[in-house]
Design a binder for these strands. Sequence first.
DNA 1: GTGAAAGCGCTAACAA
DNA 2: TTGTTAGCGCTTTCAC
Lengths: 341, 341
Amino acid sequence: MEDIRAKRSRRGSGAVTLHDVAHIAAVAPMTASRALNTPDRVSADVLARVTEAVRHTGYVRNRLAGGLASTRSKLVAAVVPTISGPVFLQTIQALTAALADNGYQLMLGQSGYVDSREDALLEAIIGRRPDGIVLTGVMHSPTGRQRLVAANIPVVETWDLTPSPIDMLVGFSHEDVGRAVATFLHGKGRRRLAVIAGDDERSRRRHHALRDAARGLGLAEIPVVVVPAPTTLRSGRTALGELLQCPGGIDAVFCSSDLLALGVLTEAQARGLAVPSQLAVVGFGDNEFAADLDPALTTVRIDSAAIGRQAAHFIMERAEGRTVDERIVDIGFSIVDRASA
Amino acid sequence: MEDIRAKRSRRGSGAVTLHDVAHIAAVAPMTASRALNTPDRVSADVLARVTEAVRHTGYVRNRLAGGLASTRSKLVAAVVPTISGPVFLQTIQALTAALADNGYQLMLGQSGYVDSREDALLEAIIGRRPDGIVLTGVMHSPTGRQRLVAANIPVVETWDLTPSPIDMLVGFSHEDVGRAVATFLHGKGRRRLAVIAGDDERSRRRHHALRDAARGLGLAEIPVVVVPAPTTLRSGRTALGELLQCPGGIDAVFCSSDLLALGVLTEAQARGLAVPSQLAVVGFGDNEFAADLDPALTTVRIDSAAIGRQAAHFIMERAEGRTVDERIVDIGFSIVDRASA
DNA sequence: GTGAAAGCGCTAACAA
DNA sequence: TTGTTAGCGCTTTCAC
């Protein structure tokens, strides 16, 4: 034992090492390592001794060292524009849970809605040599894409269905959403649609598709109010105020988040505007509160948890060295027809 | 170059290493390392050559290796019960941002509201040798505390003001909140208070304090509805329904989250119950939407971002080897007096 | 200001 | 099944 302590006095954290555990269990370090990683490739006797030594010393293995030696860090990075803004929450939650179940840990990075710090963020992430990176939201600067490809780390892009993903993809078509909502509202007899949209890429794609579809259906030109991301209840209220001044009036609003829709509901109520009779309101996201609003919110449901789980699956498959046959998964969406439309 | 490639063929990821960079810049690896970490301790000439080599190769330094050698990982772990549930979001957001500004990265762990996986989570976290751990919420099983202490990693507990923290602490007194709300509502002329509370430790402490304070003020005994955490709009609606059946009636409700309060507002509106004239509603958290509800929500404001920033500050001070003189910070709270009460 | 040597704690590869 | 050896890629230490 003395020599070990002597060695340690020079450097290191002073924590119990595998070396110590092996020493106590009277086996070689490599054998102790096997007892921990592949218990079935070790004799019952050795396993018992090592287990006991671990218990006795309170040993926690150093995954930095393990990751360095094995080039498998069991770390996965997730990048979100910002975690406030409930859109990606469920995805992150499901992702974290699915990863944790398999011994992976999540690293979180916020890109913000500006690109400036993106490069620093990528550097920080790649420097940890994660086994995978999950991109939530846009963030596809050419340099960023390049670095990701160069880093040779599995990447899953989510919440979108771009034609040429960096690597793997799980999302849905925002264009389809826009078209489906146009058809839906038209089918309900609405003729003067309007849109309140966050100023992000994906919202834009939804309402452009909606606009085009509305034209195809012979509807009036659609007034659009764009609000800054992340969207808030307040922007919903303000935006409705603006829309109500449109000449010709409106009889339906498609909001790019449920929070915006809640703002519209609130403002409508404050103004004595009846929903849905005078105004139909459709949200996006089917947040947990949507069903319990009064009136219950009609909204576009995305299975965000499924996105997280699928992303986790993708990453782990790759990390285990398996190849993924179908690199693109369309998770789809549905319109939940409640009282507000 | 050949010998380097030859060496690599056996193991490793194949990525560019500091060795390669140094080779190209015609300096020793150690000098290249200095050029990156402490640029001012290196000659301008060397700095330029190394910088160029980095640029040319796209080198990203391996922080696993760096962390192993220096026992400083520049990683910070945050543990939350669950990230859905907007309570801790701002804390996590501010924490992530403050850390990122200083080159630290956040690892996220969800303990869930049950203790079962807590041990596995701690093991996973400690195994990464983070420079600090931020605990958001309760999670103080005796064994957990023990492991954290044994791991000798700086710990910040948040959102609470326990008498004997593991290490550092930034929070506020939930008892004070309860008392303040009781006094506040009493001052508004309310006499029949009620409580809707999540079934977590901190909510419990708030409403117990409120109950005791109410007794001191000579008010009627307080009906309490406890709902499962995380709290939802729906539980708020349901709970109000239950409270309204109380013999004697109620004229004020204190909710343990703004989401619950929104549920109460919604249910009151659905039932034609006027807020605040017939029922005062007080929330907790001052979520971003609270001010824009109709009526605007009176609520208890916690500066959650400040909690995150202070926690980051604590951890980084310790990581830089400085000692923290005042290990406990009371961040306080305030009652935001809006229309709903 | 620069470099050589010696690890940090672990695991891949090979041998017994 | 177990052990030995040689690194993973970086930084500490100490000498120049």
